[in-house]
Nucleic acid binder design. Sequence first.
RNA 1: GCCGAGGUAGCUCAACGGUAGAGCAAUCGCUUCGUAAGCGAUAGGUUGUGGGUUCGAAUCCCAUCCUCGGCUCCA
Length: 501
Amino acid sequence: RGETYKLELIADLADGTISYYSHASFTDLCRGPHVEHTGKIGFFKLTTVAGAYWRGDEKRPQLQRIYGVAFDTKEALEAHLHMLEEAKKRDHRKLGKELGIYFFDDDIGPGLPLWLPRGAVIVEELEALAKKTEADAGYVRVRTPHICKEKLYETSGHLSHYKESMFPPMEFDGERYYLKPMNCPHHHKIFGSSLRSYRDLPIRMAEYGTCYRYEQSGELFGLMRVRSMQMNDAHIYCTLEQFEEEFLAVCRMYLGYFKIFGIEKYLMRFSTHAPEGLGKKYVDEPELWKKTEDMVERALVSGKVPYAKSANEAAFYGPKIDVQVWSVIGREFSLATNQVDFAVPKRFGLVYHTAEHGEQTPLCIHRAPLGTHERFIGFLLEHFAGNFPLWLSPVQVRVLTITEGQNEAARALEKRLKAAGLRADVNDTSHKVGYKIREAQGEKIPYMIVLGPKDVEAGTLAVRLRDGRQFMGVTEADFLAKVLPERDEKRLSPAWPQALA
RNA sequence: GCCGAGGUAGCUCAACGGUAGAGCAAUCGCUUCGUAAGCGAUAGGUUGUGGGUUCGAAUCCCAUCCUCGGCUCCA
C-alpha cells in the first residue's frame, strides 16, 4: 500500500524531479533532508501515535502517524514537557469536575452536558452580560421552540447542506419534526411574520437559543464540542446601505468582550469560498457569493479590522468571520462567529418595502460573539484556570469561623453580604481554620473572611484573597467599598494593595 | 464515523487468573484551634453493560456503551 501512495506522490510532482534518500538498506522517496542518526535530531521525545487519513481525506485509508517533539537543548525539551503537565491542570474537563461546573451522565447521553448549580451561575451571569450589551446596542429579544417541521429546513436549505449534522427526525401526526441545529430559520419566520418597511430596519433579533447538532461521536470533546448548546445568537436584518455599519458594530462588540474577559490572543478569520467551492454550494448564485464576500472585505478594510483570509471555509449560505482564540493549553477554537447571508432570506421570501414602493430582500448578518455557553465557559475555565473574576465566581465570599463562638456573627455577616448582592456562604464546621482555607482555596473562592474572637470583638474583618494576600482589621464598609465595584465593573483582578497589611 | 488507548468506591489510584484495597471526600464522635490537610470510628463496589472461556474472571476472549489521544468535522 505504501508503494501506491509513493506512486501517487510521484505522479503529483510538479516538475517531475524525483529525489530519494537511503539509509543503510532502506531507500525512501523523500524531498528530504534525512538525518544520519537520531543523535542529530537533538533532544526529542515521541509523544503519541494516531491514525491519520491519507492526504487528510476521510474517504481515503488511514496511515499511522507518529508524533514527537524536538528541541536544541535538554532544558528546552524538559521545559516543554513541564508546560504540558501544567497545561493539564488547566484542562476545562478537570476543572469543570473539581469545581462542580458541569457533568455528563450515561443516561442523558454523550455530548449533552448538565450544568450544576455553580455552572448555572456562570451561565446566567454571561446571559445577563449579553442581554445588557445587546439591549444597549438596540437589539430586541425573541424566543423560539426547539423543534419544527421538516418544511422549514427544506426552505432554509439545511436539509440539503447540513443534514448529516442534524439529529434524525421524529414522526408524529403525519409530519416529520427536527430538533433545531440553529436559530436562523425560526428568526426568519419572525421577520416574515409582519410587513416590514425600510423604516423598520435594521432589525436586530437576539435569542440565547438552544440548538442540537448531531456531532460525530469522535468529535465530542468536553464542553468544547457538544450536541446540545445554548448560543448567543442574533440576526440582524438590514439594507445593503446599512450593512457596513452594522457589520462593524458587531466586530466592535467582539472587541469589547475580549477586553472584559482579558482575551489577548485572537484572530479574525475571514472564511470565503475557494473558486472550486462555488460549485458545491449554491451553484445557481455564484454572483451572490462574490458580492457578499466583496462587501465583507470592504467593511473589514474600511473598519481597519485585522483579519486573515481562509478560503473554502464559509458557511453554506455565505462568507463568515470566525473568531479564533487559543486557550493557554494551546488548543485553538472558533469561539464566535459572524456570518453574512443574502441567500436564505431570499429563499424565505423575506422582503421589506422600499422608499420607492418596491420590495427588497434584506441582508442578514448572523452573529454569536459569545459563541455558545458550552464552548465559552469551557474556554474561560482554561483561560482563568478556574480563577474566575469576581463577577463570574459561583461563590464570591466565604466566611470561615475559627471557633463555635463566631457562628452567630458569621451567619449575620453572611446575611448582610447577601443583602449587598454577593454570593456568600459560611463554613462553620469544627475543622481548623487552616483546613477551611485549604478547602476554599481549592474551590478558588475569590474572598475568604476569617472570623475569630478578635475580629468579632473589634467588629472588623480579616480578609484573605485567593492569591494569598491577607488584610487584617478591615471594616465591613471598606470591604464592600472595594468588592462591589470590582464586581460591578467586571474587573479582572482585585484592587487591593500589594503589600501584606 | 475512522485509527489507537482506556473505563475498579463520590474523587485520585492499587490489585493484572485464586476471598476487591488505599488516600482524600462522606457519616458519627472527640477536638474549639488565627490563614493551604487535628484525632478516632463507621459506612461505601454485581470492577461501564451483556455474553463467553475457566474449578475459579476486575484480570483472558467477543460484543456493546462511554471517555481520552489523534484524523475528519465544527459554535
